[in-house]
Design a protein around this nucleic acid. Structure first.
Length: 444
RNA sequence: GGCCCGUUCGUCUAUCGGUUAGGACAUCUGGUUUUCAACCAGGCAAGAGGGGUUCGACUCCCCUACGGGCUGCCA
């Protein structure tokens, strides 16, 4: 881990909301920036004007905010079009940019032909061999030119911070299209220009970008820039090893949030899953920052199971002090003077905050008693012995002692039927703490 | 088809040629608890297959199988 201030970025396309896969990328970049006292840039890659929507941009920012991943700068590619045009001119001047005229259909046909002949579907550079007259002829035909970057067909190599040494033969990759016939600047180009211009020094992203990285390294170098360090984390797959994107609908941050997952639980898992460090609940963002190490991640695809978020959420929720949950408790209708006792009683028996509701319902309304036939007489007798209110923490002990005295029952035979009769459940909070909170006298 | 990456307990992983293959989570057992949870102690559990190289391979090389990614005028 470098100790120099590192500039990182999270560059989502505002064409959808953040999901767990995205989040992992965002978090890693955030943690690296913070760990080194560097800068974390949020860059909205919105060059695709048709699919990009402000609604999604707002949603992404709201999600990052919810998680506490605060950015130092926000950039929008749609505001930098002039710069991309300038960079394109520069590449043309350097002879690394060439105009092409094949239609998408023609390109598709070429690929199929190559595949059929058992050859890799790499662009054949036909347009590179066109001279000025030929190009004029193309335009006269009504064809609109699009622009490709001419790769230097050597091996592109870099020491990936996660994967290790990577070497890709540029000859096995098509010259990337950087500007479409309609003038739209493509991601590969805008991203390269931005990363250089913005001084990005470390890029963490998914392994799906490995080939992009190879071409972008050449683009950056062609512009006279120095490529940053790269780390490509493995992609998440579902618990069964299936592709995660197929389940995206259930794995959006919004959905997890709606299911009660706490930010710290989510961050704790994502900062460690796939690494050699144990997954444990972090107490704070600083713990996450201190305990993060990109180098500890493996290159193999990682299985992600959303269920793993709930034990972490439970641990987090249970650790919260009263002030952090006071408004939630008040919202349930719990009287202020009971809030502390209620929280102490219920906290050990919830996984998500919403579980509190059921415990307050029990306190407020009582429960449908659960009584086995052979215990019916015993419970009736016990209920008759219930002390008059108000009850306190000693009531349960006093009551059960009296019942034990009167009936001769003890241990599980004594306590279990009473718990079931009072709460309607086999398991739950400490009875001594629950009893004083009951708003109604239990009845059979 | 081509290119890149990967494959160690159920899961995430450690091991940079010689280890009783370690840890964490999950699970199981015991302790504690009125119950559940938590906590403590302990247990079960792994090198995809086949060839090499080597005194010795989880580790290095090759092949096969399997998994993931890329192979767009998407990002």
């Amino acid at each position: 881990m470098t100790t120099r201030p590192t500039v990182t970025r999270f560059a989502p396309s505002p064409t959808g909301y953040i999901h767990v896969g995205n989040l992992r990328t965002a978090l890693m970049n955030y943690l690296i920036a913070r760990k080194t006292g560097g800068t974390f840039i949020l860059r909205l890659d919105d060059t695709d004007r048709e699919r990009s929507k402000q609604e999604y941009a707002d949603g992404i920012m709201a999600d990052l905010d919810w998680l506490g991943l605060h950015w130092d700068r926000v950039e929008k590619q749609s505001l930098r079009m002039d710069r991309y045009a300038q960079a394109a001119d520069d590449l043309r001047a350097r002879g690394r940019f060439y105009e092409c005229f094949e239609t998408p259909t023609e390109l598709d046909l070429k690929r199929k032909k190559q595949l059929n002949m058992g050859k890799p579907p790499v662009y054949d550079r036909a347009s590179l061999r066109l001279d000025d007259t030929a190009r004029e002829a193309m335009r006269a035909e009504g064809r609109a030119g699009y622009w490709r970057f001419q790769l230097d067909q050597s091996r592109i190599e870099w020491a990936d911070k996660i994967v290790g040494d990577i070497s890709i033969d540029a000859a096995s990759v098509s010259d990337p299209v950087l500007i479409r016939a309609d003038g739209q600047v493509l991601y590969t180009f805008a991203s390269s220009v931005d990363d250089i211009d913005m001084g990005v020094s470390f890029i963490v992203r998914g392994a799906d970008h490995v080939t992009n990285t190879a071409t972008q390294i050449q683009i950056m170098q062609a512009m006279g820039g120095t490529p940053p360090s790269f780390a490509h984390h493995s992609l998440l797959t579902g618990a069964g090893g299936e592709e995660l994107s197929k389940r995206l609908g259930t794995l959006s941050l919004r959905d997890l949030r709606a299911r009660g997952v706490e930010p710290m639980a989510l961050l704790s898992l994502m900062a460690r899953l796939g690494s050699s460090k144990p997954v444990e609940l972090a107490g704070s963002m600083q713990d996450l920052i201190d305990g993060f190490d990109v180098g500890s991640f493996g290159a193999a695809p990682t299985k992600f199971d959303a269920e793993d978020l709930f034990p972490l959420t439970r641990a987090h929720v249970q650790s919260l002090p009263l002030p952090s949950v006071a408004s939630k408790i008040k919202g349930l209708g719990v009287p202020d003077e009971l809030a502390g006792a209620f929280w102490d009683m219920a906290r050990g028996n919830i996984t998500v905050m919403d579980d509190l509701a059921q415990w307050w319902a029990l306190c407020r309304d009582g429960a449908q008693p659960l009584v086995a036939d052979e215990d019916r007489e015993f419970v009736a007798a016990a209920f008759d012995m219930l002390p008059k209110g108000p009850w306190d923490k000693g009531t349960w002990a006093a009551w059960t002692a009296a019942v034990k005295e009167a009936t001769g029952r003890k241990g599980g035979a004594l306590f279990r039927p009473l718990r079931r009769a009072v709460t309607g459940l086999d398991a739950g909070p400490e009875m001594a703490e629950l009893l004083p909170l009951l708003q109604k006298r239990p009845q059979l």
